[in-house]
Design a protein around this nucleic acid. Structure first.
Lengths: 141, 141
DNA sequence: CCGGTTGTAACGTCAATGGTTACAACCAAA
DNA sequence: TTTGGTTGTAACCATTGACGTTACAACCGG
C-alpha cells in the first residue's frame, strides 16, 4: 500500500507558489521543472487545489497564488484536495457471509476502529501547516 | 487513495480462525465462504500471516490456528503482515529539481512530518488487538 | 492580432489488485 | 497403500488507477 505521490507533489507545488509568487509569475511550467514533472500534471493538480480554495489562478495571463494565509493551510487540507478518498480510507471486501457470525458483524465491529485510525492520521496531518514548512525551508534558501 | 481490502480481509480471517478453530477445522474454503472471497486468495493471505508468525497451518490435513495469545496480536501486526509498505507509506515524486531551493530540500523537510503521520496511524493501530475485537463480536454470537 | 498560458479531452503505458484455474505436495484415515 | 481433502504456488486474466504525453480551444495582456 502506498499513498500517491500526488500528495507530496501537491505540497511541493504549494510551497513553490508560496515561495515565489511574490517575486515572479509561477506557471505550471515553472512548477513542473521544480518537481521534475509535467505541466499538464501540475495544471490538473492546481485545478484540484483551486477547487478546494487553496490557490488562485489567473487564466490567460498565467500564474498561481496562495488563496489563504499560510498558517491556515495544513497538510490535511492539501490531502483532502488532491487525494480522492472515496468515503472511507479503508476498503472492505464485499458482501461477507451473513450466515457466519463473524462475517455478519465484521463491518459493525471494525468500522469504529478503522475510523479511529483514520482520525489519528488526520489529526497528525492537521498539525503541520504551510507556514511551518516554509520556515523550515528558509535556512536552505 | 484507498487502503487495500486485504487488510480488512486479513482481520476477518484472523477472527474466523480465532473464533472457530477450537470447534472445527478452519480451512481456506471455510474462510472464503465467510468472507465471500476465494480460497486461493485466503491461502495467499494466510501464507503472509503465517510468515509473520500470527497463525499456524497444518499442511495436508488442513486447518489454521492462531499462533499467539489474542491480546498479543494487534491491528498493526496484521497490517504489517499483509500490506506491503515499500519502505515508506508516502510516495515521493522522483528527482525534484536540485536547482530549485524548494525542490532541493523538499525531501529533507517533509520526511519528518510524513513519518509523524505514519507513526500516528501505527500507534492507533496498535491500540486494538484481536482479543478486543473478539469480545465485541460475542454479543452477536 | 500575437504569444504565453490555462483547462481539458483523449490516449497510452505501467503496476497493483483481485480473481480464477490448475496442479504438485502433503497427510490422515480407510 | 490408496484415497480424499487440503495446502502452497505458478500462471494467467481483467480491471483499475496513476502518471505521462500530445493536442487544442479558450483566455488575456501587451
Amino acid at each position: 500500500m502506498q499513498i500517491t505521490s500526488r500528495f507530496t507533489l501537491a505540497i511541493h507545488t504549494m510551497l513553490c507558489i508560496a515561495s515565489f509568487s511574490s517575486s515572479r509569475k509561477v506557471t505550471s511550467n515553472f512548477i513542473a521543472e521544480s518537481t521534475n514533472s509535467n505541466p499538464v500534471i501540475i495544471r490538473r493538480l492546481i485545478g484540484q487545489l483551486k477547487e478546494a480554495g487553496l490557490v488562485e489562478v489567473k487564466p490567460g495571463i498565467g500564474g498561481a497564488t496562495v488563496a489563504k494565509p499560510l498558517d491556515e493551510i495544513n497538510l490535511k487540507d492539501i490531502f483532502n484536495a488532491v487525494e480522492v478518498v472515496n468515503d472511507k480510507m479503508f476498503n472492505f471486501h464485499d458482501n461477507p457471509n451473513c450466515k457466519c457470525p463473524v462475517g455478519k458483524n465484521i463491518h459493525t465491529i471494525l468500522d469504529e476502529h478503522l475510523n479511529d485510525i483514520e482520525e489519528a492520521m488526520n489529526n497528525q496531518m492537521r498539525k503541520t501547516n504551510l507556514m511551518m514548512l516554509l520556515e523550515e525551508t528558509k535556512p536552505y534558501l
